[in-house]
Design a binder for these strands. Structure first.
Lengths: 205, 205
DNA sequence: TATAAAATCCTGTTTTTACAGGATATCAGG
DNA sequence: CCTGATATCCTGTAAAAACAGGATTTTATA
């Protein structure tokens, strides 16, 4: 019995590459692909795959949000996280959101096939690096920010003062200051300069 | 005549995917791949491809450094930047480092082939998004910094205060403050946060 | 060798941030 | 229903940065 596979990734070359890679596999049926969460959900209304390969970082709805949504609507579908990031926080979030496994983009074809087969059998599979990421607490992780913290961070990066941010977001400047404090705690930054530097390196602004 | 192609990327699935995609192409000869800058340079000592597809973000030596090095040692080799980032700074840095083109990972197979053919003919090719990235921010000019200003900027980004920077560079904290003022003037930044943000986007830290 | 650019240093004042140490309301998940 | 996370708000003090407006020395180069 063939495994009905669907893929969601915003990088066309990755999709086409994996498609081409799996085309020669007898036991995989390629159902199609989507380049964002919205079109993935639209596809699922018409047809239901067994396994979805899902990129984490996508424009619009993130893989984590999409994973939650898909699992809520279609609990039978197995989801494999697919990403370039081997950061603990990402792997963790994805598993928490209901993913059955996690494969890094630097995994081998064999590893990918193993993960797909495991997912089909309702088992879980984490690629080696993903397991390492979960084990390795020492590795510097990208902090997970709340909606408000992200908004405040963006405004700080634009050069706005607490007062200006407060006016813009309709909150008190002291509240902005609290968010700022929390941001610096999360990033373990000494001051704004370090905060913006770290956030920028992490690709969050 | 076949195009002798080599690829450098730390994501195995991307390599295998692109290999699989291009295998059916008549006019491309797959020479091999490397997962980092060092092994790429080692390969080039033995054999010389015509075109190298090169990822920008890699562990160890970055694509930008590798590009410079390859162009220095083997000026005849054409290099195509390959990345998920459509940020101006990356595209620009890569071109400055001698790359003949830039293709995003969400490009189509046709676009990739076009870029490879252009590179083979010593022409340049930028994928649509890369051109957009270059066009969108052309107005913003990156300020030219002095040696000292760069040093101070780096220290500021690390979270050091004027006093700490002064001690480290054996100058007065007031001098550091002057450099800071000049940096903010050059970047037209309102405060450190904006300064670090702009400098980071410009790829200067 | 002029001259411009760079690097150094200073005294103030005002504004903003950093840090400490709270409190309250809401809402989702176990 | 309780707990934890989120978001909101507050008072204070100390430290740092931002701003203004200087000056001197060094260094590269036209």
């Amino acid at each position: 019995m063939k495994t009905r596979l669907f893929i969601v990734d915003d990088h066309y070359l990755v999709i086409e590459g994996i498609r081409s890679l799996l085309q020669q596999e007898e036991d995989i049926e390629w159902m199609g692909h989507a380049s964002n969460g919205e079109s993935c959900l639209a596809f699922l209304e018409k047809d239901e795959p067994e396994v979805i390969l899902m990129d984490i970082s996508m424009p619009g709805m993130s893989g984590i949000e999409l994973c939650k949504e898909v699992k809520k609507r279609y609990p039978g579908i197995r989801i494999l996280g697919l990403s370039t990031f081997n950061q603990r926080s990402f792997v963790e979030k994805m598993i928490e959101s209901g993913a059955n496994g996690y494969v890094l983009k630097n995994a081998s074809k064999e590893e990918l096939l193993k993960a797909i087969q495991a997912a089909k059998a309702f088992k879980s599979y984490l690629s080696f690096e993903a397991v390492e990421a979960l084990r390795n607490h020492t590795e510097k992780e990208v902090p997970i920010l709340t909606r408000r913290e992200k908004e405040v961070l963006e405004q700080i990066a634009e050069g706005m003062t607490n007062q200006e941010i407060g006016e813009k977001l309709f909150i008190s400047s002291t509240t902005v200051d609290t968010h700022r404090k929390n941001l610096m705690m999360k990033f373990e930054a000494k001051n704004v300069a370090a905060l913006i530097h770290l956030a920028s390196k992490a690709g969050m602004i």
